[in-house]
């Protein structure tokens, strides 16, 4: 048995390493100052897909990402680790999308990719922390979803068995494919890049990237068509432009504020016996403790 797997991945600003210059004076996020990375939980999802491919030879992994042209990095990262091909959904009309408009665009691209058995993606992206896109893609495609997956245990006879990690325990579920699986950060980390695959795919580029570059790739790309990373626009995936981007997003950002905490007056206490005893005495006397 072999599986046709689609991995949804997102390029995100690394919000875990936010420096002082991450915010502009007007309070908006300075995306240029943040390194762009492969969304961490999408890497956990890719690893689950790669393990299925190891287990069921002949399986294929297709990466799908939406973003500006530099998001092609995500596809190359996936190819370096064992994915078979990938598509970049890129169009100005996709800009400003909330989760619903994003899910719509992704579902149209998935329809264009064609038949599949499984869609895997990270539970959430670290720039939004919403965990909404996985379930919404499933709804748009009218297929079931399994969220918070920690381990895809195996597939047989069209059924797939998945272990989920919940707040206070674990759950093992089974369902018929095709379905969408969102993978938790508690799942195994993704394997490193493979040196042979780096050699194979290091020149993989989108048309936009090739045009920005002076080198003439014509010969290379006609000899090795797998190096061409397809870019899809709204029209390419037959999407309704009104349902994409800002116009397709029911949620609007009314305002954005920098986080400022009200500074309080505080009392300094020295780490001496006297000072600490005094503090403890006070806390016991006013019934804060004891």
């Amino acid at each position: 048995m072999s599986l046709r797997i689609i991995v949804l991945a997102k390029q995100v600003p690394d919000t875990r390493n936010v420096g002082k210059d991450a915010m502009k004076a007007d309070g908006t996020v300075n995306r240029a100052a943040l390194p762009a990375i492969f969304n961490p939980e999408d890497l956990n999802a890719l690893e689950q897909a790669l393990r299925l491919k190891d287990k069921y030879p002949g399986s294929t992994i297709t990466l799908l990402t939406m973003g500006p042209s530099r998001a092609a990095d995500v596809i190359r990262e996936g190819l370096f680790r064992g994915a078979d091909n990938g598509y970049l959904l890129t169009d100005r009309a996709f800009a400003g999308a909330d989760t619903l408009a994003t899910s719509y665009a992704l579902s149209k691209a998935i329809e264009k990719i064609g038949d599949f058995d499984l869609i895997v993606c990270g539970r959430q992206a670290i720039d939004g922390d919403t965990d909404q896109v996985g379930p919404q893609v499933a709804e748009k495609l009218n297929i079931p979803q399994v969220t918070y997956a920690e381990d895809i245990l195996g597939a047989a006879n069209g059924l797939i068995k998945i272990k989920r990690r919940l707040e206070r325990g674990v759950e093992v579920v089974e369902g018929a494919m095709p379905l969408v699986v969102t993978v938790n950060g508690s799942a195994p980390a993704c394997r490193p890049r493979n040196a042979r695959l780096i050699q194979k795919y290091k020149h993989a580029k989108t048309v936009t990237e090739r045009q920005a570059d002076d080198t003439d790739y014509t010969e290379l790309f006609s000899a090795r068509p797998y190096l061409n990373l397809p870019e899809w626009s709204v029209a390419d995936v037959s999407a309704d432009v009104v349902q994409c981007g800002l116009s397709g997003s029911p949620t609007k950002v009314k305002k954005i504020e920098n986080v400022v905490f009200q500074a309080k007056e505080h009392r300094s206490v020295e780490p001496t016996d006297d000072d600490i005893n005094g503090l403890m005495k006070e806390l016991i006397e006013n019934h804060t403790i004891g």
Binding site: V18, M23, G128, K252, V253, K254, N258, V259
Partner: peptide, 18 residues
Amino acid sequence: YQIRPAFGGNIVATIINP
């Protein structure tokens, strides 16, 4: 008004569905 932190807690956004 749906108010939530975003961007790893570095900003607070007010979201509405008009």
